[in-house]
Design a protein around this nucleic acid. Structure first.
Lengths: 359, 359
DNA sequence: CTGAAAGCGCTAACAT
DNA sequence: ATGTTAGCGCTTTCAG
C-alpha cells in the first residue's frame, strides 16, 4: 500500500534502520559521505511521498501522543466558556505534538476501551470525575489532570477561584448599598465543586458585613415569585452563572421590570453574550482559555514524569485561575421605592412560595 | 507490563490464537468441550484484568476506529450552535465504536501527521476545507465528509437549507408589511457557503415581492449609522446569524431605541441565548445536532464502502438539513412614524456613511 | 475447532 | 555511522 522505510531502504541501497535514523534526524552528519547519503535518503523519501505510519509508531513506542478529554455530561463540554477551555487545550497540546480525543463517559463503559486500552497516553477530566472512572484510571496508572474540578486531592488539577470571585461580586453589591442579596443556583445545575465555592465566597462576604445570606437552589420562576413581592425582597441577586442571570433578566423583562432599577444582577463566567445583554451584565470573569493551556502543560509534564506525586502534598500540582469582577450595567445602588410588584394581569399560576432553601 | 493474550494462553494451556478468537467471540461454541474451554479462557482473562491493547490492534488491523474533526478556525468550532454538531457527532460515532479527535488545521501542516499518518480512519471537515487539505486527503484516499460545507461537489456532505431559511425569514418580514429590509453580514465573518445561500434566499424573496435588496457586509456601527437616519432607513433587518442580531439589539438599546418598534430584527441559527434576549429573537432554527448525527452515519458508511462515488452524481450522498422560522418578539409590523433619529447627545464619531455594499 | 506462523511498520539495543 | 535483529500485541491465513 503506502510507502515504508523498507521501500526507501531498498531504493537507497541501505538498511531500514539507517533510513529510520536519517528520517528522524538521529544522524549527526559529521562525516561528509554519510551526510550525502542522508540527503539521498531524504530525497527518495520525498519522491516516494513517505509518511511515517503512526499506528506502527504508536505500537512500537507504546504511546500514541493522544490525550483523552473525559466528560460526563454532553451539555457541559462546550457550554458557556468551556469551549474556550477546549480550544486552549487543543492549541497548547498541538505545540507539544499531542492531540485530543473526545471521550464522553457513558454508562456502558465504552470509554474504558479507549482510555484504558491505550489509545491515549493520558487524560484530562472535565468538571466532574465519577468514582468508577477515577478508579479505572488509577488502576492502569494512566496520567490524569483535573480541569475545573478538585474532587481528587491527589491528582494535578486546575480550578477557578470561585470563592474569590463570588466574594468580590457580593462585596460589590454590598458596597453599592444592597442589604438583601440572594444567591441563585438553578436547580438544573449538576453537582460541582464550584457551587460550594461560590456559595462560600458569597456567604463569607455577607457575614463579613453582618448580612444574612439567602441561598436559592430552585427554578427561575420561583425566584421571580420572590422578586415580585414588593418591598420584602432582595434588591441584589448573585447568580451561580450567566445562565441564571440570563433567565432572570428575561423574566424581569417579561414583567416589565427594569435592571438594575428593580434588581441588581450579577452573573458568573463572563460568557461572550453577556457583554451584549441589555443591560450588559455585571459578571465574574476569568481566563478560561488559560485553564486549557495550563491543563495541557500539566498533563504533558506529568507524562514526562516531571510531576511525581510528592507525598500527599499536591500544592505544587494545583493551579488556581484568578477571577475578576467585571462591572457593567446590570448593577447599581438599590432604589428607595417599594420595589416591583406583581402586575395583576400577569399573576403566575400556582402558589407564591419562598424558594426552597435547598442545600 | 500489562496482560496480553499470551499470558492468558499460557495460563489456560492453549495457543494465543485460541485466546484471541475466544475473546473476540469468533468461536461458535458448537462443541461442548470448546465451549467449556472458551469459558475458562474468559474467566482467566477476567481474573488477570485483560484489556486488548488498542495500539497493537490498530497496527494489526490497519485502522484505529478514530475519526478526525478538521477545522480551520478555532473560533468557529464550538461557537453558536456548532457545539451541538460536535455533540451529535461524538454521540453517534460512539454508537458505532468510533471516537473523535480534534484536528485544527495549522499553517505548519502538523495536521498532516495525524490525518495522513493514519492516526484516523477518516475525517469530517467543518465549515471550510482549504485546498491543500483537500488535496492531501484525496492523495492518500482518506474517507471524508463535509459538515456545513459544499465546497467540494464530489465529497459526501451535509448542509443547512440556508436559502430556504433566509427566504422564509425575509418573507416573514415582508408579510408583516416591511418594504425596506436589509441583510447584514458582519465583516468579521469568514467566507462560507452559507453567506451566499442566505443572501440568495433573501434576494429571491425580495425580488419575488418587487422589493430592492440591500446587502450590508460591514460593521455594526456602520449599520447603526444607517438605522439612525430617520425615515430613510430599513424597518426590517435580516441578520446573517444571531451574532449580528445580538450586536444590533445591543446597539439599539444603547441608543434607547426599541425592538421591534423601531426595527424588526431576525437572526439565524437559533442559538441558545436568543430565546432569552429582550425581546426574544425571531430567528431561523435547524437541528444542529442532526448535522453531527448524520455526519457520523455518512462517514461510517463511507468507511464501510457503502457510499462509493457514483460517477459525479453526488446527490445520494448530499443531505440538507431543513430550517424553520421561529417567530418571537423581535419582529412586528413597521411603525408608521418617521423612525428613530440619532440622539444629539450620542452622535458617533466619524462620518455617517452608507455601509459599503461589499460583495 | 485449534495451533503454528507470518505479518502489520517502526524503534532501539547491540554488534560491527 | 551502519547493519542486524529482536521485539511491540494482535489478527489472520493456513494446515492439521
Amino acid at each position: 500500500m503506502s510507502v515504508t522505510i523498507y521501500d526507501i531502504a531498498r531504493q537507497a541501497g541501505v538498511s531500514s534502520s539507517t533510513v529510520a535514523r536519517v528520517l528522524r534526524g538521529a544522524t549527526k552528519g559529521d562525516r561528509k559521505d554519510s551526510a550525502q547519503r542522508a540527503a539521498h535518503i531524504r530525497r527518495i523519501a520525498d519522491q516516494l511521498g513517505y509518511r511515517p505510519n503512526l499506528r506502527a509508531r504508536s505500537f512500537s513506542e507504546q504511546r500514541t501522543k493522544g490525550l483523552g478529554l473525559l466528560y460526563t455530561d454532553d451539555g457541559w463540554v462546550f457550554e458557556g466558556v468551556n469551549d474556550k477551555v477546549v480550544r486552549g487545550l487543543v492549541t497548547e497540546l498541538r505545540k507539544h505534538g499531542h492531540h485530543l480525543t473526545l471521550v464522553p463517559i457513558d454508562e456502558q463503559g465504552e470509554w474504558k476501551e479507549v482510555v484504558l486500552g491505550g489509545h491515549v497516553d493520558g487524560c484530562l477530566t472535565f468538571q466532574y470525575l465519577p468514582e468508577p472512572v477515577r478508579q479505572g484510571i488509577r488502576e492502569v496508572g494512566l496520567p490524569c489532570v483535573l480541569l475545573g474540578d478538585n474532587s481528587d486531592p491527589d491528582v494535578p488539577q486546575i480550578v477557578v477561584d470561585d470563592y474569590g470571585g463570588s466574594y468580590a461580586a457580593t462585596r460589590h453589591l454590598i458596597s453599592l448599598g444592597h442589604r438583601r442579596i440572594a444567591l441563585f443556583v438553578h436547580n438544573s445545575v449538576k453537582p460541582h465543586c464550584s457551587i460550594g465555592e461560590r456559595r462560600s465566597g458569597y456567604e463569607a462576604a455577607m457575614h463579613d458585613h453582618q448580612l444574612t445570606p439567602e441561598f436559592w437552589h430552585t427554578s427561575e420562576s420561583d425566584v421571580m415569585d420572590v422578586l415580585l413581592r414588593g418591598a420584602d425582597r432582595p434588591t441584589g441577586l448573585l447568580c451561580y452563572s450567566d445562565l441564571e442571570a440570563t433567565l432572570i433578566a428575561h423574566a424581569m423583562w417579561q414583567y416589565g421590570l427594569k435592571i438594575p432599577q428593580h434588581l441588581s444582577l450579577v452573573g458568573f463566567n463572563d460568557k461572550f453574550a453577556t457583554e451584549f445583554m441589555t443591560p450588559p451584565l455585571t459578571t465574574v470573569g476569568f481566563d478560561a482559555n488559560r485553564i486549557g493551556e495550563l491543563g495541557a502543560q500539566l498533563i504533558i509534564r506529568t507524562l514526562a514524569g516531571e510531576l511525581a506525586e510528592t507525598n500527599g502534598d499536591n500544592t505544587a500540582r494545583t493551579f488556581q485561575i484568578k477571577t475578576k469582577l467585571i462591572v457593567r450595567g446590570s448593577t447599581s445602588p438599590p432604589e428607595s421605592n417599594d420595589g416591583p410588584r406583581r402586575p395583576a394581569a400577569m399573576s403566575m399560576r400556582g402558589s407564591v412560595d419562598t424558594p426552597s432553601r435547598g442545600d
